[in-house]
Simulated assay, not measured.
Amino acid sequence: MTIRLPAADGRLRTYEPRVDPLVISSGTPFTSRTVFSAAHVVADPYADASPDSPAAVDWDATLAFRRHLWSHGLGVAEAMDTAQRGMGLDWAGAAELIRRSAAEARSVGGRIACGVGTDQLTGGSPAEIRAAYEEQLAVVEESGAQAILMASRALATVASGPEDYLEIYGHLLRQAAEPVILHWLGPMFDPALEGYWGAADLDTATEVFLEVIAAHPDKVDGVKVSLLDARREIDLRRRLPRGVRCYTGDDFDYPELIAGDGEGFSHALLGIFDPLGPLAAEAVRVLDAGDTAGFRGLLDPTVELSRHLFQPPTRFYKTGVVFLAWLAGHQRHFTMVGGLQSARSLPHLARAYELADGLGLFPDPKLAEERMKNLLSLYGVNR
């Protein structure tokens, strides 16, 4: 059986789908790395919602997907950008997601960390930004989850320089009940975060970031770095205080960064580990056994898919993530909060299908093929 897929030049080409999936079963907990998957949300396809409406979430399917990730030993990074924070999911929806997912985590013994931001605001003074962070931090801590202090669009807009970041982050770290993860999200993921930490120059920004950590090392579990620059991440992790982890957010270079070198390694908090969940978990268990070559052998072939999903404009990677979840049978439809399923072209989605199928990511390749054909027919592609 073959399928005709559109290429980037608009021509149709023939592809022969894989017959058998890659079979991976759940296994023992990880021992050498702490690994989170930033999980997507499943929209309610029957809601009469517009792109400007509050998010309509299918809670059953959303929580089922988190149970899938936990079953393979992965932690869930909740209410992050993969869950469309700031791109369809507002704070009210995120707060509900945090509460529901944290309760689900308790019921199954899963690890969870949740995003804390300021998306109640569109602007505001430093005092209002601090209060917004505090409100969200309280929700996460009351849920029993670990907090991830996310970058703030509002702070990026009003900060006059590094001192504003030092003051606000210092205040939040002093009052945090438990060590948090600091998240540095680059402008390729969110253009509104250009110049974060008070400087457009990344070397200068790194010094401010490190100053925040050095002032409160006991309150920083780790840092998530999403700059898509492996060398910069390696240099940063070598300068972190002892006991502070580096969680890679580099969806281009994650095998190298997680494997590490003679001077250290990165843990992981990655959006690409949403579609790669079982395969990523298996690779980490191979690494736990001391087999770095085996780890790279499993994970290196996935980089082409990840780089494809995260290609510019990178912030629309969520569309490919949800598309693959639909093809894999984790949800009944390809509908996204805010209508974001339209954010990638048909050739882009077709290539994502081909790459994911080649990796054996679909538990039921025939189902994935049929769903891909259904999508193609909607675009007028003959079967």
Rank of each mutant, 00 (worst) to 15 (best):
A352L: 10
A39R: 00
L172F: 07
N374I: 05
L74M: 06
F265A: 09
P51F: 09
T335H: 15
V116M: 07
G294H: 02
A159P: 02
G264P: 07
A127T: 13
P275N: 15
E142K: 08
T31A: 10
D48Q: 14
R296F: 04
G115C: 00
L378D: 07
H267E: 06
G360Y: 06
V220K: 06
E233C: 09
A145R: 04
R332L: 14
F362L: 04
A159V: 11
L69N: 07
I234D: 07
S266H: 10
N382T: 11
P301W: 01
V108M: 15
L12A: 11
R242Y: 06
T2I: 13
I168Y: 13
A289M: 01
A55Q: 13
D58K: 13
W326G: 07
D221V: 00
A132H: 05
I129K: 01
A8S: 09
D251G: 03
P126E: 14
P191W: 12
A350T: 05
L172C: 00
E96Q: 14
M336I: 14
L359V: 08
H333D: 15
A281S: 00
L361H: 13
F209Y: 06
Y165W: 15
D60V: 11
Q175T: 08
D164M: 15
N374M: 15
A127K: 08
A268Y: 03
F273H: 02
A56I: 10
P21W: 12
D261F: 03
E263Q: 03
H267K: 01
Q331T: 09
R371C: 06
A95S: 12
T34R: 14
I272P: 04
A61V: 04
V286K: 01
T314D: 00
V220Y: 02
V42H: 03
A131G: 04
D20G: 00
R13P: 00
E256Y: 06
L236E: 07
G75P: 03
